[in-house]
């Protein structure tokens, strides 16, 4: 699948969804395709956007939370699958953008990529439902199915690129990201993230 087309389709299913993107290709491409200011684009802590999303999902069990992970990020924190399955969050949907390379550093191949299966790893970790999406038709079916409650893992098989990714990063950084996302959460869901004095 081509990544922009993939994200274009996914974005049409995010009306009431909280989206968290791992740093790098996931965040940069999601920003380029959607321009979403309701998304949390993690700027650091590679590997741990999925754990961040789990915290959101456990704290807001009535809202669907998507983590759009990178394959490099997932491999940096495979334990996240065990931790999440231990919670069994019916509202957490874990996508991994799987192109087999560290894209933003020049398309460097990932170790073990040709000999491993992320869906098998996720299933082995106890994730309730695991999918592989290798075509737009398959992705459409997955997006319909994951609306049903249940902890889900989705391997998005996207095309690799031999060069560095050209999508620009979103034009705001740490503190602005915090306040944009927090204010969006307050606006969308009627919750209070920041106190009356703004912190």
């Amino acid at each position: 699948m081509e990544i922009k087309e993939t994200f274009g389709l996914m974005a049409r299913h995010t009306d009431d969804v909280i989206v968290v993107c791992a740093l790098g290709m996931s965040a940069n491409e999601w920003w380029q395709v959607t321009g979403s200011e309701d998304t949390f684009y993690m700027h650091g802590a590679m590997g741990f956007a999925s754990s961040f999303a789990l915290g959101l999902a456990v704290a807001m069990p009535d809202k669907q939370v998507w983590i759009i992970d990178g394959d490099g990020s997932l491999c940096m924190n495979l334990g996240t699958l065990l931790t999440a399955s231990g919670q069994g969050p019916a509202n957490l949907k874990h996508f991994v953008l799987n192109n087999g390379v560290y894209q933003t550093v020049g398309g460097v191949p990932m170790t073990g990529a040709s000999r491993s299966s992320y869906t098998a790893i996720a299933a082995g970790a106890g994730v309730e439902r695991c999918y592989t999406a290798d075509s737009m038709n398959a992705l459409s079916a997955v997006l319909a199915d994951i609306k049903k409650p249940g902890h889900c893992f989705i391997d998005l098989q996207v095309e690799r690129d031999d060069g560095p990714i050209l999508a620009p990063p979103q034009p705001f950084e740490g503190p602005e990201m915090k306040y944009r996302f927090g204010r969006a959460m307050e606006r969308r869901f009627g919750i209070e993230v920041f106190g009356p004095e703004g912190y």
Binding site: F40, S50, S51, G55, L56, V58, A59, N77, G86, I191
Partner: peptide, 25 residues
Amino acid sequence: AHIRVAREAEAVAAASGAFFAGARS
């Protein structure tokens, strides 16, 4: 709600994510 993690940095990230749900963690 108690999230038992597999590595300490997960606890850091999960507690930080909960902040944006308006939860104290």
